[in-house]
Each structure stands twice: as structure tokens, then as C-alpha cells.
Design a protein around this nucleic acid. Structure first.
Lengths: 336, 336
DNA sequence: ATAAATAATGACTTCGAATGCAATAATCAA
DNA sequence: TTGATTATTGCATTCGAAGTCATTATTTAT
């Protein structure tokens, strides 16, 4: 039970009667070692329980094999899943995820400095509101970055995102063609870029279709906030024909609120659409009409793009926009 | 735009006219440095954009400041949230989460070797089925481990878990006292320790209360699996008085299946209980009677215990069992 | 068999910060 | 002012593996 001392490449070298360099080469792929020494080293290494120290390797190779993933501390509803997926693909590339939490937006500069000290091979940002200057900070350090579901207009950034524009227009088309007249938009938190984007797209497109001055109320993406926002607005203004929610969970809240407290039938008296395509949206009690974000492809694309920049730092920035799939549920229905 | 060279402590030392040691000491808390050199160093460091390299520091101090978190690749439903929480508390301790994925149980030994090479300060395991031997492997390397929601009987391990026993008994008491006669247990995947534990506790306690040979069918914790398991069993055997599901999501599946395909009313004709207390369980359309796992306390406890072992390696192993809160929803009702 | 080409090896340096130790400077007491 | 204490400093070494370069062993060609 004595405190095990760490076995180093020198220990193995001595024991196997070779040089430390030889041991090192055996553990690096594609280096020239004779079969004899290779087996000798591998045998003694196994016998002594030697594994190359990742930290020392990082220091000398200047490559940590780690990818920094930045998530917001007040986690957006489906980010945990995104994180899981990312981790899966990153692990497939034989790299590791090093997690960083961003508490408030103004910590970003400090956080990036911090990330940099870890010599990470790349960064994937889920939550941060990136300014151009932050990106430059990382560029200076030659660290490739991919933004997930975050568009920085006219910046040279790698990013993947689901086309909110296309998706939201599809949803609104259904409502518009279904002859809905009065609308309500329930948007997400205003400090979220994505939430603002979804809101703006909806409002603009509605206007374009002739629905001026559509009211907008705000939630925080949660079930409760959806319920309350809907209850409060309808209490004062009556029931609209259709509610456009910035995510599925709030849409579910709206549906439940209608069901519980009002004698409003969804979809007969009220149509509701969401966004994201999370699993509860498909549950029988809700069947929300929504756009499913291609989570799997999005995360895979993010990792692909990042790997490409890591292996080939001069590749130009790339934005990959994937389109979500329209899911026509049972929460919308044309008016007579 | 030229490739920025890394600023080292030597560079700062030269520029500030002091030794490298001085620079190092300025950046370590609690070391003796005169006020004059401290400011001088800090100024030039800031001017040159110097930050101590975390990797080099890890190598020399033998402390990485990283906590390995092991998650299963086929993620258990609510692990993403657990991960987020853990990350939050670990970040509070000024440490980082390094994620590791376990694909199949037999990779564990290799994975642990791998983890060890990163010199992590500690390990939190969410998913792994740990054998005593694996634990010894880490113990040899002096790396403290905390198991999350995983009991290794008569092993000296640090662990936190929610008392399944107490919770499930509470749920069953409600059903039993509510005069339910026929039961069905829908268990989780058999390769999950937690799932098996929940199943066994339910069956044993039911037996103890005089309900022999309660049938058990299996799902995989998913909504669909809950629906199908319930549909299949009732199709062949009729509707029981009560269904005990190993998690909330399957319970929700059961409720929806009853609602959709059968003219079974929950809770009038059928009582359903779940486990976990995930948010959808509280939604108006379901209101599942369940036990809420104290996620926040569990994760906090895990991190606390780990930090204690890191700072004081000789602390004896500790198991902290937290009790979940019973939530009486609207999915259960006493029989006449 | 011998020159030429190739493969394998080891000595030594490197990555960047931390720290033991000895030397020096600053402070204090008398 | 001098010696004793204490606070700062710098030198040199360390952590553990990787890679450069020159050297030696091996293979191939002639």
C-alpha cells in the first residue's frame, strides 16, 4: 500500500537496457524502431506498468489533445445534450473535452486567457456572445474556434448552426396558409443571441406577410415562463389564433396552460408552434408542430470543422448551416 | 498577423530585469516577494501578455487541477444535467472537468490507465460499473474517486447516492395503502446497476407487503420503451391497478399510452409512479407521483467529498446517502 | 567483398514553470 | 556601528517525454 512511484520512460529504458529515446519512439506512431527493441520495450513497459505521461507530452509537443468547450453557467435547456454529443465525437477523434463555464459575458476575455494557458488544440463555444475582438484574441494564439449555433455577422469565424430563418418561415407559412389572423410571439431571454434572432425572424416574416405589429412577450425558455407569459397576455388581451414560441418547452407550457386554465382547445381554438424538436415535443400529450434541430449533424459538423482547422490551420473560415426538419404535429390546424 | 510566439517566464524576467524564479513566485500565492518586484513583474507581464503555462505547471507540481468525469457513452437520460451541475461546482473549486467517455464496460481498465496519464486530481464516475479491482487500480495511483449514484457493496469507496430504497418504499406505500392489488414493474436496462437496484427493491418490498410474483417487464428508460412495454404487457395480461416505473420518462410513456390507445384513465383506473423527479414529470399533462432526486445536493456532495480527499488523502472513505423528496402528483389515487 | 544507402540507436537538449538551497539585501536590537 | 535575524533574490535542478543530430548497425547494390 506504499505510495506507488510514477514509472518514467527512463525507468523502462534502464530496465530494458535501451535509451530513453528508444522508449519514447516505441510509444510514438510512425517512428523507426527495430522489432526487437519494440517488443523488449513494450514487454518491460507492461511489466512495470508504464504509460507515457500525457502532461509531459503536451508540454514538449505543444499539443494538449484537449478541446475546450465553453458552456454558459445558466445552461440553456438543451445544451447538456449538445455537450454529450460533442464529447462523443471529440472522443472519436481521440481528443478530450476540457469544460469551461462562462458565468457572465464580461468574463469572456479572462476566460479565453485561461483557456489559452491550457494549450488546447481548439475551442468550441456553445454559449458565449462572441465579439470580434474575442475572436481575434484566439486567432493571435493560433487556436481555432468553432461557434455552435451562434452567428457573428460578417466575421471570419467557423460556425455551425441550424437555419433559424428557414425553419421559422416554414412554421409561419403553415400558420399563415392555415388562415390564422392574430399572432403572439413568445420569445426567449433577450441576452441570448439565438433567442433574439428567432424573435426577429418571426416578426419580420410575419410583417412581410401582412401581419403588422405582432405582439411579443418574453420568457426564459422554461415551461413555467411559457405558461405565465401566455396566461398573462391572454388575460389582458384575449386569445390569439396562433402562438409562436421560440422553443418547444415554452410551447408545451402554453399548451398546458390552455388546457388547464382555459377552455381553449389546441389545435381547434389555438395553434402553437415551437422550435428545437426536443423529445417531449413529440410526446402524445403535446405533439408540437416544430422544427427539429439536427443535433447529431450539428455537433458532428462542429467537430469536423474544428479538426480540419487543427490539422490545417490555413483553411479559410467556414460556416455550415444545416436545415432542421419540419415536424407537423397536432398543435396546429388550419382555420375554417 | 505573424504567428505570435509564446511569452515565457524567462521573457518576462529578462524584460523586468529579474530572475525567472522571481516571476514564478509572483504568480504563486503565498510566496515571499518584495512589493517592488511584484509590481514590476506584474506590469511587464501584463504588458507582454504573459500568463503562466498551465501545462508546465502541472508537470512540475504534479497537480493538474483537472477532475476526470467518466460518463457512459450511451448516456443515461439525466446524466447531461448531472454533468452540468458537477461542472458548476468543480469550476467553483477552481478546477476543470476533463471528460471521459466509457463505451463498453470492459474498456474500464484501459480508460483508467488513460485517465491516470493526465495526472488528474480526482475522478467522479457517473456511469461505470466499478469492480473492486478497478478501484484498487486508482487507489494505487493515489487518485481519489467518488462514485455517483452507484453503490459498490462492502467496498471502501467514496460515493454519493440518492436512497432508492427509501424512495421506492414511499411510493409503494402510497399504492399499497391506496388499496392497489395488482402491480406491474417496468424496470430499466439490466446492464445498469441502478436500474437493477430499483427493480429489486420494488419487487422485494412488494413481496414483503404480500404481493407475490409481481410481473416485471423491461424498458430502456425511454418514453417509447415505457409505452411499448406497457402496451405489450396489458395487451396480453390486462390492465393492472398500478405500474411502478423505474424512471419518470417511462412513467410518462405509460400515461400517454393509456391515454391514447386505451380508454384507461390515469389515475382513476390506473396508478403510475416514476422516479427521478425530472421536470416533465411535473408538467400539467402528467403530474407524475415520483421521488425527486436532489440533484443539486448530490452533485455538490460529490464534489465536496472529492475535494476533501484531494486535500486530505488519508480521510477514510465516505458514503453520503441523500433522500429524495416525495412528490405526490396526480398519477396515483386510492382505490375505493 | 566492398562501397553506398538505409535503418536503428543513444547522447543531449528542449518544452516552461516551480522550488531547494545558498547568497545577498534589508531590518532590527543593542 | 556591529552582529544577529529575517526577508528577498538568483542559480541550478527538476518534472517526463520528444525530437535533433551524429553515430553505429544493418541491408542493398555492384
Amino acid at each position: 500500500m506504499a505510495k506507488q512511484k510514477r514509472v518514467t520512460s527512463y525507468d523502462v529504458a534502464r530496465e530494458a537496457g535501451v535509451s530513453q529515446s528508444a522508449v519514447s519512439r516505441v510509444f510514438r506512431p510512425g517512428f523507426s524502431v527495430s522489432e526487437k527493441t519494440r517488443t523488449k520495450v513494450l514487454d518491460t513497459a507492461k511489466k512495470m506498468g508504464y504509460k507515457p505521461n500525457a502532461i509531459a507530452r503536451m508540454l514538449i509537443t505543444q499539443q494538449s489533445g484537449m478541446i475546450a468547450v465553453i458552456v454558459s453557467s445558466r445552461a440553456n435547456v438543451n445544451y447538456p445534450e449538445v455537450l454529450s454529443q460533442l464529447n462523443k465525437y471529440i472522443a472519436q477523434q481521440n481528443k478530450r473535452v476540457l469544460l469551461f463555464t462562462l458565468d457572465s459575458a464580461d468574463d469572456l476575455a479572462g476566460l479565453l486567457e485561461n483557456i489559452w494557458t491550457y494549450q488546447v488544440d481548439g475551442v468550441i463555444a456553445l454559449a458565449a456572445h462572441f465579439e470580434q475582438s474575442s475572436l481575434e484574441q484566439l486567432e493571435q494564439h493560433q487556436i481555432p474556434v468553432v461557434l455552435y449555433n451562434r452567428n457573428v455577422p460578417d466575421a471570419n469565424v467557423n460556425s455551425v448552426c441550424c437555419s433559424h430563418e428557414r425553419g421559422i418561415k416554414q412554421l409561419i407559412n403553415i400558420l399563415h396558409e392555415g388562415n390564422h389572423k392574430s399572432y403572439l410571439v413568445i420569445a426567449g431571454p433577450t441576452d441570448s443571441d439565438v433567442a433574439n434572432e428567432r424573435r426577429d425572424i418571426a416578426c419580420q416574416y410575419l410583417k412581410q406577410l401582412g401581419h403588422d405589429n405582432v405582439p411579443v412577450v418574453y420568457g426564459d425558455y422554461s415551461y413555467e415562463s411559457g405558461r405565465k407569459a401566455f396566461a398573462k397576455w391572454t388575460g389582458a388581451n384575449g386569445v390569439p389564433d396562433a402562438v409562436i414560441c421560440s422553443n418547444d418547452i415554452m410551447a408545451i407550457g402554453v399548451i398546458d396552460e390552455a388546457k388547464e386554465h382555459m377552455s381553449i382547445s389546441v389545435p381547434d381554438d389555438l395553434s402553437v408552434v415551437g422550435f428545437d424538436g426536443v423529445s417531449p415535443a413529440a410526446w402524445f400529450s403535446y405533439q408540437v408542430t416544430t422544427i427539429r434541430q439536427p443535433l447529431d449533424q450539428l455537433t458532428k459538423a462542429a467537430v469536423d470543422i474544428l479538426m480540419e482547422r487543427i490539422n490545417n490551420p490555413d483553411s479559410p473560415p467556414e460556416t455550415r448551416v444545416l436545415t432542421g426538419a419540419l415536424i407537423e404535429g397536432n398543435s396546429t390546424k388550419p382555420r375554417q
